[in-house]
Write a protein that binds this DNA or RNA. Structure first.
Length: 598
DNA sequence: GCCGTTTTCGGCCCGACTGTTTTCAGTCG
């Protein structure tokens, strides 16, 4: 089993342990172990297992090391099998119903003998659930509603879509006279690729009008909580949103707390404790003395007018929200070694875009005009190759015609944006490219992508892509895994091996910025970039509006700790042209390091 | 189950909200 599969098993064991009423800290140990494991590289895990040093990883002790070893070697867990034999799978499903936690599920099971959601629905309709101790009519109704809305409640949303809902709410909150500060927090602010719900943090003195405004927004279908410091609503799209109201002096602490991630917060609190302080959403206080953190925070919190001040108080450089994933950012901030992250304004153009020649919805000239309006120095056109019949892939002749059009367009000088000639060339099932070398040689660059035979084995797919990477005409690899967020999983492939091959062959890997893709995933970039992999942030635009997807790509790049220098399309046109020319001239494997700009 | 330069035992983040209670348990984040 690989580390992801093992981590999934450990998390599942934690869930099952919850249902048995186990010690919560034991459960937390399994969850934390799974997280630690996930943050290791597969190769690190192999090494640690081989050298029997797994227990050197913080959070993994004897028991977890044994579990992990067993799962790695055999793919099975005796503990998991024991738990599965004793717990009906329907109980795990019940945990997903909002309002139902392990205690209530256990009560429902033990006292009513219920093991499935269907039985639970019947029992609620019969009024039997309301009669249980600690339950009542409202709980029963909430369970029924939760089961009905399970799909919508549980669904995550693309960051791009959630951002569009959040933007007007933030603007509206800021416009209220009672509000001095308002920000979105949570996974939206951290720019996760998908978002579970929205969190808004508001500094206000008079809360009632703010709550009233919030719960009466268009699209609000249900108000699920409404108090003096918090209100929750659910939109008709299923997206949920929380509003949290704090006094102005607590704003920075609350914003930090609700931005998370959970891992980041745990580490921040540990860091605070290590220097004699206690950090909470309420403030930062001395960890000694009587009283709760909240009581002390109200009376004596160290002031923090901003998140920056909060980090400073803990001896840390400011950590941008995108990095707050508990993946080493606190250590880096302590050493003042955080990267200077790429910004949207750093981009000078992009390489992977489509026109009406293949499956795009805007013409070459419309796309160019749109790029010009964005201030781009260059726009790469990479329409599909012949094998992508469904996308009207270009024949050799049509490609030659398009290249001639591009040269003619550039010659007019009509746009400040220089158009580069490229192709998104299919990687055929055996790893050959879909155009002959001679055709590829007429282009400024070549993006290679998989669009067929998604069901190949991992070994075949990996070998196929590596063969394409080793092709001397290949400039960059498009959408590495083929995933569509919330819709389609990645095809099977060994990402590590492909990154190795790209670095060895000086091939760029694209960060496809289409909000449905964001592929290659941000989690791989930090290490890959440190090893010399060059990134290109490409919108994969199929219309003029699609060019703006690059902002989602920049978000993902920032999450991957990428700097401006790590991304090819931050370079000026001349530098990009000379880089591409060098690659075409057979500089294969001998490309000098990228010049440093800015 | 994990951890430890005060500890090998006794902690492990903790507060808001809801619904059920009549002082608090469970859930959530």
């Amino acid at each position: 089993m690989n580390k992801t599969a093992i981590a999934d098993v450990l998390s599942h064991i934690a869930t099952l342990l919850e249902l048995t009423g186990e010690n919560p800290f034991k459960i937390r140990a399994y969850i934390s172990g799974a997280r630690q494991l996930q943050s290791l590289e597969q190769s690190e895990l192999e090494t640690l297992l081989r050298e029997e040093r797994l227990q050197s990883v913080k959070g993994i002790g004897a028991a977890l090391a044994q579990q992990i070893g067993e799962l790695h070697a055999t793919g099975r867990s005796t503990l998991l099998e024991q738990l599965q034999a004793s717990i009906a799978p329907g109980l795990v499903e019940m945990l997903e119903v909002p309002g139902l936690g392990p205690k209530k599920v256990k009560a429902i099971h033990d006292q009513l003998g219920i093991t499935t959601l269907a039985e639970l629905t019947t029992a609620c309709n019969d009024g039997r659930v309301a009669e249980l101790a600690g339950f009542g009519a409202k709980t029963q109704e909430k369970i029924l509603a939760g089961i009905r809305n399970r799909e919508a409640y549980g669904k995550r949303h693309l960051w791009w879509a959630a951002q569009q809902v959040a933007e007007p709410i933030i603007a509206g909150l800021r416009a209220l006279p009672q509000v001095s500060q308002a920000e979105a927090a949570g996974s939206l602010r951290r720019c996760m690729e998908t978002v579970g719900d929205l969190d808004f943090i508001v500094a206000a003195t008079d809360v009632a009008p703010v709550v009233e405004w919030f719960v009466t927004q268009p699209g609000v279908q249900e108000i699920t909580a409404r108090g003096d410091t918090k209100a929750s609503v659910r939109f008709d799209t299923g997206l949920q949103a929380d509003l949290r109201l704090v006094p102005p002096e607590q704003f920075a602490f609350a914003l930090h707390h609700f931005t998370g991630s959970k891992d980041h917060n745990v580490q921040m609190r540990q860091r605070a404790l290590s220097i004699g302080l206690s950090l909470s959403e309420w403030g930062l206080v001395l960890s000694t003395g009587e009283g709760t953190t909240k009581e002390k925070a109200a009376a004596e919190s160290l002031p923090a007018a901003s998140e920056s001040a909060l980090f400073t108080a803990l001896g840390l450089a400011y950590i941008p929200p995108e990095l707050r994933e508990g993946r080493g950012e606190i250590e880096a901030a302590e050493a003042d070694a955080l990267p200077h992250l790429i910004e949207l304004d750093d981009l000078r153009g992009a390489f992977h875009n489509h026109t009406t020649a293949s499956d795009g919805n805007n013409t070459l000239e419309e796309m160019t005009a749109a790029a010009d309006a964005l201030g781009w120095s260059y726009l790469g056109i990479a329409d599909h190759s012949p094998s992508s019949v469904q996308a009207r892939g270009l024949s050799e002749a049509r490609l030659a015609e398009q290249v001639a059009q591009i040269h003619a367009l550039n010659a007019t000088g009509r746009y400040r944006t220089h158009v580069l000639t490229g192709t998104e060339c299919d990687i055929l099932p055996d790893g050959r490219l879909d155009f002959d070398d001679g055709v590829l040689a007429t282009l400024d660059y070549v993006v290679v992508s998989v669009h067929s035979a998604f069901t190949q084995s991992q070994d075949d797919m990996t070998a196929r892509i590596i063969r394409a990477i080793e092709h001397p005409r290949t400039t960059m690899l498009g959408h590495l895994t083929g995933r569509l967020l919330l819709r389609r999983e990645s095809y099977a492939l060994d990402v590590g091996k492909i990154i190795d091959a790209a670095i060895a062959n000086h091939v760029v890997i694209e960060l496809n910025a289409n909000p449905w893709r964001l592929d290659m995933d941000w989690r791989h970039w930090r290490k890959a970039s440190a090893r010399g992999l060059l990134c290109a942030i490409n919108p994969d635009a199929h219309d003029t509006a699609g060019l703006e997807f690059v902002s989602a790509g920049v978000n993902a790049a920032r999450k991957g700790w990428l700097t401006k220098n790590a991304v090819l399309n931050t370079r000026p046109l001349a530098a990009v042209q000379s880089w591409l020319a060098h690659r075409r001239s057979g500089g294969h494997g001998h490309v000098p390091p990228a010049p440093v700009h800015g």
